[in-house]
């Protein structure tokens, strides 16, 4: 049934699942944060930084960002696999995207805990 030449070896299901789990986490975070912000009478610098001074908010924001980066990796990898045919270019793009996303992870920690 499975055409291995097209699908590769058994990473498909795991990534398919991770794509959906990260999506659900991002949906929940988005709804909670948006709901909270819409309920605030006014958002200024003090209210904004007070929100992000909480360790719970920082932790779940980092979780949200990590989910975003992993989700983005799977999506971008699929796009590259679909449209970029030469193996060398494909590999180069994959490596660049992975390194970029890893740098975003480090940057995210610095933003949230270095404010």
């Amino acid at each position: 049934m499975l055409n291995r030449i097209v699908t590769g070896a058994h990473y498909g299901l795991r990534d398919w699942l991770i794509q959906r789990i990260t999506a659900v986490i991002m949906v929940i975070y988005t709804l909670v944060i948006t709901g909270y912000l819409l309920l605030q009478p006014a958002i200024d610098y003090n209210a904004w930084t007070l929100l992000f001074s909480s360790n719970v908010v920082r932790t779940f924001t980092l979780l949200f960002l990590l989910c975003t980066f992993y989700h983005a990796w799977i999506g971008i990898r699929d796009i590259v696999m679909d449209y970029v045919k030469p193996a060398a270019v494909r590999l180069l793009l994959h490596v660049l995207v992975i390194i970029t996303l890893l740098l975003y992870v480090i940057w995210s920690v610095q933003i949230l805990w270095g404010m």
Partner: peptide, 24 residues
């Protein structure tokens, strides 16, 4: 869905910079 996903991925540095600027 694909186009918007790619657009959001390309905007990640801008969005992270905005989060950084808003909190710094």
């Amino acid at each position: 869905h694909r186009v918007s996903g790619l657009f959001l991925f390309l905007s990640l540095p801008l969005l992270l910079w905005m989060l950084y600027s808003s909190l710094r």
